[in-house]
Amino acid sequence: MSVRVRVIPCLDVANGRVVKGVNFVDLKDAGDPVEQARAYDAAGADELCFLDISASHEARGTIIDVVRRTAEVCFMPVTVGGGVRSPEDARALLLAGADKVAINSAAVARPALVGDIAERFGSQCVVASIDARRRTDGEGWEIFTHGGRKATGIDAIEHALNLTRLGAGELLVTSMDRDGTRDGYDLELIRTIADQVDIPVVASGGVGHIGHLVDGVTQGHASAVLAASIFHFGEATIADAHRALAAAGLPARSH
């Protein structure tokens, strides 16, 4: 078998607590991040993603502590995103036990940051995270920041290719049109990017059931699939996801 399709539960964390927005901005407390991470580690998640959505700079320190405590008890790869603005921010997370850092808004403001972090810590730990919406005229996609509320005018595909050239080791592509809708990934967006880059692409935004994960790979050409609520609310297990991928003829871990 070849390298497995990775199934990645994503935990949104604010002020050291797990939250998940049903519509991205409506937040619902769902518990302690370390306990949830342990549960996913035990369930055989292929990786875990923490997205720090703390509003204030002061609250940012709490994610470092969450990562450190998680790394003491979980033995799986962890990606941390949200508020990474400098190589020093990346370093603090990596030292705490993160394996990869996801860079989003700061790479919109200054794409060279991706290269700065890749040069110091290696491309393998740099995830370029992209939030995109389909343009209203239907022609392509545009990068949005601030949780999908602020348009930037930047073409999403060009931005993805640029961050890849600058040294990203992976792309996390989120459709802000789909996020929280449960209608499935924006497969055309994912595929358009995945077909043009050599690095792995993680599909994100909109998963409503297990079949969407399979679509992300078979139709979106993603190497990994990220989801939140279907796992958090117990609608599906990691093993269900692996079984569905395997049933579709895709490489997935056995349980």
Partner: peptide, 8 residues
């Protein structure tokens, strides 16, 4: 894809 990233 390179990096070779994931379970194998």
């Amino acid at each position: 894809k390179v990096p070779h990233m994931g379970w194998n």
